[in-house]
């Protein structure tokens, strides 16, 4: 994404207020869409698929823009993604074990 340089921007590297505003609007709309799915009759697999996709996009927006992973050292991204993958493995493993 091409950033617009503004006065004093040398003091930081990251998005500016218009980008943050846009992310906030996107997060709110995605949250409302998530809530909306609770009131619509959908097959479980489709319902879960939509919700998990919306959730992943919301998490991605917050960590990429609000937490600056898109702009910071890529090392930070790996420090975050690796435990997320391990955590996901823990969650899925326990669900699998519970199925006996």
């Amino acid at each position: 994404m091409q950033r617009e340089h503004e006065p004093n921007e040398h003091a930081h590297h990251g998005p500016d207020k218009p980008t943050y505003n846009l992310v906030f609007v996107a997060l709110t709309v995605l949250m409302l869409l998530s809530v909306g799915t609770a009131y619509i009759e959908l097959p479980d697999i489709l319902h879960y698929g939509i919700l998990l996709t919306l959730m992943s996009v919301k998490v991605g927006l917050v960590v990429a823009y609000y937490m600056h992973l898109k702009y910071d050292n890529p090392l930070f991204t790996w420090v975050f993604i690796l435990p997320v993958l391990m955590g996901l493995a823990v969650v899925l493993s326990l669900q699998g074990l519970a199925g006996y």
């Binding site: 435990p83 955590g87 823990v90 969650v91 669900q95 519970a98």
Partner: peptide, 28 residues
């Protein structure tokens, strides 16, 4: 920031464990 991200990584694992148990309880 690197140190803080390491802290966040540890929190991710803690919350993952709690979520794993909760998802099981949700089914039961």
């Amino acid at each position: 920031k690197f140190g803080w991200w390491l802290y966040i990584a540890s929190e991710v694992m803690i919350f993952s464990s709690l979520i794993a148990v909760f998802m099981l309880a949700k089914r039961l």
